[in-house]
Simulated scan of single mutants.
Amino acid sequence: MAPSLNRRPGFSRRAQYGLFIGYVLAVGGALIAVALLLLSTLNPPAFAVVRGAFSEVTTPIASGLDWMRRGISSVPGGVSSFFGVRSENARLKAELEANRTLVDRARVVSQDNRRLRAMLKLRDRVANPVVAARLVYATGSSTRRFATLNAGSWQGVRVGQPVRGPDGLIGRVIEVSPNTARVLLILDPESIVPVRRIKDGLPAIAAGRGDGMIEIRSAGAAQVLFEPGDGFVTSGTGGIFPPNIAVAIVTARARDIARAQATVSPDTLDYALVQQSFFPEASGIRAREAAPQ
């Protein structure tokens, strides 16, 4: 059978309309191209206006397509950058942790350096130092308050000698062995230190309370008013403690008996300075009499 001469694309109207529109677009495009060619040849200024209008229309579309192209092309780089940033972040965190450890060590060394410098200045300032020793132990929770020094009779430490830090009085030596010494702290209830008020020289007694505080009692006059901030130093009475060593500061207003804070806490000290007694002979007798049995 001979093939049909009908070349129509089937009986689908959609296919027929598509073919027709394609022909129209092709013919229209050819006509527009011819018109533009003639316009560019015969009237270049008018062609420039038309070209500018087309540029205004196509530029935003081209920019959008270019942005999409660049965005899609940057996806692999972004993924690799993400994993690179994660690894870099982990490395920086590890480095920061190592640096934090070094900073903490440097702070500890700096604090120790400041304390040692303060102790050296104190030793140079005090006229009769015996030895600078480490406080290896101090009771902080018991009602009895003692401390241990890593220096003893072989280093010149004797019973009755006062022990102080850069900021004030710590206590006095009550027991001595060849390389260690036991110190009765001023916070202990058995500790009695003659003191005077800085602002007017009022004589008083500083006694430990056993709870980390000190009790200031008037030594003479009755109805004495103590004000917060009143500072007390050793008076030199009794022959054990040299005068003018800081002891305590009153924390609340009171009459005759006031609660005070010690100017130095043995728990925060690494080193202490042992001094000669103010009057060695008298202080030795009193120290032996006052030493606990």
Score class of each variant (00 low, 15 high):
Val247Thr: 03
Arg158Glu: 14
Phe146Ser: 03
Ala204His: 03
Val57Pro: 02
Val75Ile: 15
Thr59Asp: 12
Ser142Ile: 00
Ala272Tyr: 02
Val247Leu: 00
Ala219Thr: 01
Ala207Met: 14
Ala221Gly: 05
Gln293Pro: 11
Gln161Tyr: 10
Arg69Thr: 15
Val173Gly: 00
Asn150Ala: 00
Glu175Asn: 07
Gly208Lys: 02
Gly284Trp: 12
Leu5Gly: 08
Val173Glu: 04
Pro280Asp: 04
Thr41Ala: 12
Ser191Tyr: 03
Asn6Phe: 10
Leu185Met: 05
Asp124Glu: 15
Gln155Arg: 13
Ala90Val: 10
Pro45Tyr: 09
Gln276Pro: 03
Asn128Thr: 12
Lys121Met: 07
Pro178Tyr: 10
Arg172His: 13
Asn150Gly: 01
Pro76Lys: 05
Thr41Lys: 10
Pro228Leu: 09
Gly78Tyr: 08
Arg8Leu: 15
Lys93Asn: 11
Arg286His: 12
Glu215Tyr: 12
Pro9Ile: 08
Leu149Asp: 07
Gln161Ala: 08
Arg197Ile: 01
Val130Thr: 04
Gln261Met: 15
Asn179Asp: 14
Gly28Asn: 14
Gly152Asp: 05
Gly71Gln: 10
Asp230Cys: 07
Leu5Pro: 10
Asp256Pro: 09
Val136Arg: 10
Ala290Leu: 15
Thr234Leu: 02
Ile205Lys: 11
Gly10Gln: 02
Ser81Glu: 10
Thr251Ile: 15
Ala287His: 04
Asp230Ile: 06
Ala132Ile: 09
Ile192Val: 13
Val109Asp: 14
Gly165Ala: 05
Ile240Phe: 07
Leu96Ala: 15
Gln16Trp: 15
Gly10Glu: 01
Val136Cys: 05
Thr237His: 15
Arg196Ala: 11
Val109Gly: 08
Leu149Pro: 09
Asp211Lys: 05
Phe47Arg: 11
Ala207Tyr: 08
Ser55Arg: 11
Asp188Leu: 01
Val131Met: 03
Phe11Val: 11
Ala222Cys: 11
Val173Gln: 02
Gly22Asn: 13
Val224Lys: 02
Ser55Trp: 09
Ser283Tyr: 06
Ser4Val: 07
Gly52Asp: 15
Gly152Met: 04
Tyr137Val: 06
Asn89Trp: 08
Asp167Asn: 09
Leu185Val: 01
Pro129Ser: 01
Leu102Asn: 14
Ala30Cys: 14
Gly208Pro: 01
Phe47Leu: 04
Leu202His: 06
Ala2Ile: 05
Val57Ala: 10
Asn6Lys: 12
Arg70Tyr: 14
Asp124Lys: 12
Gly171Ala: 00
Arg288Ala: 10
Ala260Pro: 04
Trp154Cys: 00
Ala46Glu: 12
Asn43Arg: 13
